[in-house]
Amino acid sequence: MPRRDRPATPHADAVRMTSVRKVYGKGAGAVTALDDVTITIPRGTFTAVMGPSGSGKSTFLHCAAGLDTPTSGTVLLGGTDLSGMNEVRLTELRRSRVGFVFQAFNLVPSLDVLRNIELPLRLSGTRTDRAWLEEIIDRVGLTGRTSHRPAQLSGGQQQRVALARALVTRPEVIFGDEPTGALDTVTGRDVLTLLREAVDALGQTVVIVTHDPVAAGYADRVLFLADGRIAGTLDAPSADLVAERMAGLGGRV
Protein backbone atom coordinates (compact mmCIF):
# COMPACT_ATOMS: atom_id res chain seq x y z
CA MET A 1 0.00 0.00 0.00
CA PRO A 2 1.44 3.42 -0.93
CA ARG A 3 2.10 6.00 1.78
CA ARG A 4 -0.87 8.25 2.47
CA ASP A 5 1.09 11.35 1.49
CA ARG A 6 2.66 9.83 -1.64
CA PRO A 7 0.77 9.71 -4.95
CA ALA A 8 0.20 6.19 -6.28
CA THR A 9 1.63 7.18 -9.68
CA PRO A 10 4.25 9.83 -10.48
CA HIS A 11 2.73 13.25 -11.09
CA ALA A 12 3.80 15.24 -14.15
CA ASP A 13 4.53 18.27 -11.97
CA ALA A 14 7.24 17.99 -9.34
CA VAL A 15 6.08 21.23 -7.68
CA ARG A 16 3.05 23.42 -8.24
CA MET A 17 2.61 26.70 -6.37
CA THR A 18 -0.66 28.58 -6.75
CA SER A 19 -1.25 32.14 -5.52
CA VAL A 20 1.36 31.67 -2.79
CA ARG A 21 1.77 34.57 -0.42
CA LYS A 22 4.13 34.67 2.54
CA VAL A 23 4.04 37.50 5.06
CA TYR A 24 6.37 37.78 8.06
CA GLY A 25 5.24 39.85 11.02
CA LYS A 26 2.05 41.80 11.54
CA GLY A 27 0.73 45.32 11.27
CA ALA A 28 3.01 48.15 10.20
CA GLY A 29 6.07 45.91 10.54
CA ALA A 30 4.77 43.16 8.23
CA VAL A 31 7.04 42.15 5.35
CA THR A 32 5.65 40.41 2.27
CA ALA A 33 8.33 37.96 1.10
CA LEU A 34 6.22 36.26 -1.59
CA ASP A 35 3.29 37.96 -3.29
CA ASP A 36 0.86 35.90 -5.39
CA VAL A 37 3.42 33.46 -6.81
CA THR A 38 2.05 30.86 -9.23
CA ILE A 39 4.52 28.52 -10.92
CA THR A 40 4.84 24.91 -12.06
CA ILE A 41 8.10 22.97 -12.03
CA PRO A 42 7.90 19.91 -14.30
CA ARG A 43 9.34 16.60 -13.17
CA GLY A 44 12.80 15.77 -14.48
CA THR A 45 13.96 19.36 -14.98
CA PHE A 46 16.64 21.66 -13.54
CA THR A 47 15.37 25.07 -12.39
CA ALA A 48 17.51 27.92 -11.07
CA VAL A 49 15.90 30.70 -9.00
CA MET A 50 17.51 34.13 -9.12
CA GLY A 51 16.73 37.70 -8.11
CA PRO A 52 18.06 40.76 -6.29
CA SER A 53 18.58 40.74 -2.54
CA GLY A 54 15.24 40.61 -0.75
CA SER A 55 13.40 39.29 -3.81
CA GLY A 56 12.06 36.25 -1.96
CA LYS A 57 14.33 33.52 -3.33
CA SER A 58 14.99 31.70 -0.07
CA THR A 59 11.35 32.02 1.01
CA PHE A 60 10.31 30.56 -2.35
CA LEU A 61 12.58 27.57 -1.81
CA HIS A 62 11.47 27.07 1.80
CA CYS A 63 7.78 27.14 0.89
CA ALA A 64 8.25 24.86 -2.12
CA ALA A 65 10.18 22.34 -0.02
CA GLY A 66 7.78 22.31 2.93
CA LEU A 67 10.29 24.00 5.23
CA ASP A 68 7.95 26.96 5.69
CA THR A 69 4.17 27.38 5.41
CA PRO A 70 2.66 30.02 3.12
CA THR A 71 0.38 32.64 4.61
CA SER A 72 -2.05 31.84 1.81
CA GLY A 73 -2.13 29.86 -1.42
CA THR A 74 -1.26 26.23 -2.07
CA VAL A 75 1.91 24.21 -2.59
CA LEU A 76 1.71 20.75 -4.14
CA LEU A 77 4.63 18.34 -4.11
CA GLY A 78 4.06 15.70 -6.76
CA GLY A 79 0.32 16.21 -6.45
CA THR A 80 0.30 16.16 -2.63
CA ASP A 81 -1.11 19.32 -1.06
CA LEU A 82 1.15 20.47 1.78
CA SER A 83 -1.53 22.80 3.15
CA GLY A 84 -2.75 21.80 6.56
CA MET A 85 -0.02 19.23 7.19
CA ASN A 86 1.28 19.31 10.73
CA GLU A 87 5.01 19.38 11.40
CA VAL A 88 5.20 15.62 11.98
CA ARG A 89 3.75 14.84 8.55
CA LEU A 90 5.85 17.54 6.89
CA THR A 91 8.98 16.08 8.49
CA GLU A 92 8.10 12.61 7.25
CA LEU A 93 7.44 13.98 3.77
CA ARG A 94 10.74 15.87 3.65
CA ARG A 95 12.70 12.81 4.77
CA SER A 96 11.19 10.50 2.18
CA ARG A 97 10.42 12.71 -0.80
CA VAL A 98 12.75 15.72 -0.71
CA GLY A 99 16.53 16.08 -0.82
CA PHE A 100 18.46 19.15 0.33
CA VAL A 101 21.88 20.55 -0.59
CA PHE A 102 22.90 23.77 1.17
CA GLN A 103 25.85 26.15 1.01
CA ALA A 104 26.87 24.90 4.45
CA PHE A 105 27.33 21.19 3.88
CA ASN A 106 25.47 20.27 7.10
CA LEU A 107 27.35 17.01 7.57
CA VAL A 108 27.58 15.33 10.97
CA PRO A 109 31.29 15.62 11.90
CA SER A 110 31.31 12.50 14.08
CA LEU A 111 29.99 10.28 11.27
CA ASP A 112 32.01 8.97 8.35
CA VAL A 113 31.00 9.57 4.74
CA LEU A 114 28.95 6.38 4.45
CA ARG A 115 26.93 7.07 7.59
CA ASN A 116 26.37 10.69 6.60
CA ILE A 117 24.95 9.53 3.27
CA GLU A 118 22.75 6.92 4.93
CA LEU A 119 21.48 9.31 7.61
CA PRO A 120 18.11 10.14 5.97
CA LEU A 121 17.38 6.42 5.59
CA ARG A 122 18.22 5.74 9.22
CA LEU A 123 16.06 8.63 10.42
CA SER A 124 13.08 7.41 8.41
CA GLY A 125 13.61 3.74 9.29
CA THR A 126 14.08 2.82 5.62
CA ARG A 127 16.24 -0.14 4.63
CA THR A 128 19.29 0.78 2.56
CA ASP A 129 19.31 -0.35 -1.06
CA ARG A 130 22.98 -1.31 -1.27
CA ALA A 131 23.13 -1.37 -5.07
CA TRP A 132 21.64 2.13 -5.28
CA LEU A 133 23.93 3.38 -2.50
CA GLU A 134 27.01 2.09 -4.33
CA GLU A 135 25.82 3.65 -7.59
CA ILE A 136 25.33 7.03 -5.94
CA ILE A 137 28.73 6.88 -4.24
CA ASP A 138 30.34 6.05 -7.57
CA ARG A 139 28.44 8.76 -9.46
CA VAL A 140 29.51 11.52 -7.09
CA GLY A 141 33.13 10.32 -7.07
CA LEU A 142 33.42 9.18 -3.44
CA THR A 143 34.54 5.61 -4.00
CA GLY A 144 37.39 4.94 -1.59
CA ARG A 145 36.39 7.85 0.67
CA THR A 146 33.44 6.34 2.53
CA SER A 147 35.37 5.74 5.77
CA HIS A 148 36.61 9.33 5.99
CA ARG A 149 35.16 11.89 8.38
CA PRO A 150 34.05 15.29 6.99
CA ALA A 151 37.12 17.04 8.47
CA GLN A 152 39.31 14.80 6.30
CA LEU A 153 37.63 15.99 3.10
CA SER A 154 37.91 19.09 0.95
CA GLY A 155 34.95 21.43 0.62
CA GLY A 156 34.10 19.98 -2.77
CA GLN A 157 34.20 16.44 -1.42
CA GLN A 158 31.96 17.43 1.49
CA GLN A 159 29.41 18.86 -0.95
CA ARG A 160 29.56 15.60 -2.91
CA VAL A 161 28.65 13.81 0.32
CA ALA A 162 25.74 16.20 0.78
CA LEU A 163 24.59 15.53 -2.77
CA ALA A 164 24.83 11.77 -2.29
CA ARG A 165 22.82 12.12 0.93
CA ALA A 166 20.19 14.06 -1.01
CA LEU A 167 20.00 11.40 -3.72
CA VAL A 168 19.99 8.27 -1.57
CA THR A 169 16.26 8.39 -0.77
CA ARG A 170 15.38 8.74 -4.49
CA PRO A 171 13.58 12.01 -3.73
CA GLU A 172 11.01 13.63 -5.97
CA VAL A 173 12.89 16.94 -5.81
CA ILE A 174 16.35 18.07 -4.73
CA PHE A 175 16.38 21.65 -3.44
CA GLY A 176 19.68 23.51 -3.28
CA ASP A 177 20.28 26.82 -1.51
CA GLU A 178 23.48 28.30 -2.98
CA PRO A 179 24.98 24.79 -3.27
CA THR A 180 28.20 26.13 -4.81
CA GLY A 181 28.44 29.30 -2.73
CA ALA A 182 31.23 28.01 -0.48
CA LEU A 183 33.25 26.41 -3.27
CA ASP A 184 35.92 27.68 -5.62
CA THR A 185 35.02 28.08 -9.29
CA VAL A 186 36.38 24.75 -10.55
CA THR A 187 34.94 22.71 -7.68
CA GLY A 188 31.62 24.51 -7.97
CA ARG A 189 31.36 23.58 -11.63
CA ASP A 190 32.07 19.95 -10.74
CA VAL A 191 29.11 19.98 -8.34
CA LEU A 192 26.88 21.68 -10.93
CA THR A 193 27.85 19.02 -13.46
CA LEU A 194 26.80 16.34 -10.97
CA LEU A 195 23.45 18.07 -10.46
CA ARG A 196 23.00 18.29 -14.23
CA GLU A 197 23.83 14.58 -14.57
CA ALA A 198 21.32 13.74 -11.82
CA VAL A 199 18.64 15.30 -14.02
CA ASP A 200 19.81 13.87 -17.33
CA ALA A 201 20.86 10.38 -16.23
CA LEU A 202 18.62 9.73 -13.22
CA GLY A 203 15.52 11.74 -14.14
CA GLN A 204 15.89 13.79 -10.98
CA THR A 205 14.18 17.17 -10.46
CA VAL A 206 16.52 19.89 -9.19
CA VAL A 207 15.65 23.39 -7.97
CA ILE A 208 18.45 25.69 -6.79
CA VAL A 209 18.69 29.25 -5.53
CA THR A 210 21.87 30.86 -6.81
CA HIS A 211 23.46 34.27 -7.30
CA ASP A 212 25.83 32.97 -10.00
CA PRO A 213 24.84 33.33 -13.69
CA VAL A 214 27.29 30.53 -14.56
CA ALA A 215 25.50 28.18 -12.16
CA ALA A 216 22.14 29.20 -13.61
CA GLY A 217 23.48 28.36 -17.04
CA TYR A 218 23.42 24.66 -16.11
CA ALA A 219 19.64 24.79 -15.65
CA ASP A 220 16.85 24.14 -18.13
CA ARG A 221 15.01 27.23 -16.94
CA VAL A 222 15.76 30.24 -14.78
CA LEU A 223 12.99 31.74 -12.66
CA PHE A 224 13.52 35.41 -11.77
CA LEU A 225 11.99 36.97 -8.67
CA ALA A 226 11.72 40.65 -7.75
CA ASP A 227 9.90 42.11 -4.74
CA GLY A 228 8.35 38.72 -3.99
CA ARG A 229 6.81 38.33 -7.44
CA ILE A 230 7.80 36.37 -10.52
CA ALA A 231 9.61 38.78 -12.81
CA GLY A 232 10.04 36.38 -15.73
CA THR A 233 11.59 33.12 -16.82
CA LEU A 234 14.36 32.19 -19.22
CA ASP A 235 14.52 28.83 -20.98
CA ALA A 236 17.77 27.25 -22.21
CA PRO A 237 19.77 29.94 -20.39
CA SER A 238 23.36 30.96 -20.91
CA ALA A 239 25.44 32.75 -18.32
CA ASP A 240 25.53 35.90 -20.46
CA LEU A 241 21.77 35.99 -20.94
CA VAL A 242 21.20 35.41 -17.24
CA ALA A 243 23.61 38.20 -16.28
CA GLU A 244 21.90 40.57 -18.71
CA ARG A 245 18.47 39.77 -17.28
CA MET A 246 19.74 40.16 -13.71
CA ALA A 247 21.18 43.57 -14.55
CA GLY A 248 17.72 44.63 -15.64
CA LEU A 249 16.29 43.51 -12.28
CA GLY A 250 18.76 45.49 -10.23
CA GLY A 251 21.96 43.45 -10.24
CA ARG A 252 23.23 40.88 -7.80
CA VAL A 253 21.33 38.94 -5.19
Rank of each mutant, 00 (worst) to 15 (best):
R16H: 04
R16D: 01
R16G: 00
R21D: 08
Y24V: 13
G25T: 11
G25H: 08
K26V: 15
G29Y: 07
V31I: 14
V31W: 08
T32N: 10
V37M: 05
T38M: 05
I39S: 00
T40S: 02
T40Q: 00
P42H: 07
G44D: 05
T45V: 05
M50I: 09
P52A: 12
P52D: 10
G54Q: 06
S55D: 10
S55G: 14
G56P: 08
G56F: 01
F60N: 02
F60D: 05
L61N: 06
H62W: 03
C63Q: 04
A64I: 05
L67G: 06
L67F: 15
D68C: 06
S72L: 04
T74F: 01
V75F: 00
G78A: 09
G79R: 00
D81V: 12
S83N: 12
R89H: 14
T91A: 13
E92D: 15
R94C: 07
S96W: 02
R97D: 14
V98A: 07
V98N: 03
F102A: 09
Q103V: 10
F105W: 06
L107R: 03
P109V: 11
L111M: 15
L111S: 10
N116S: 08
I117W: 02
E118A: 14
L119T: 13
S124D: 14
T126V: 12
R127L: 13
R127P: 06
R127I: 12
T128N: 08
T128M: 11
D129Y: 07
R130E: 14
A131K: 11
W132N: 11
L133W: 04
E135G: 06
I136Y: 01
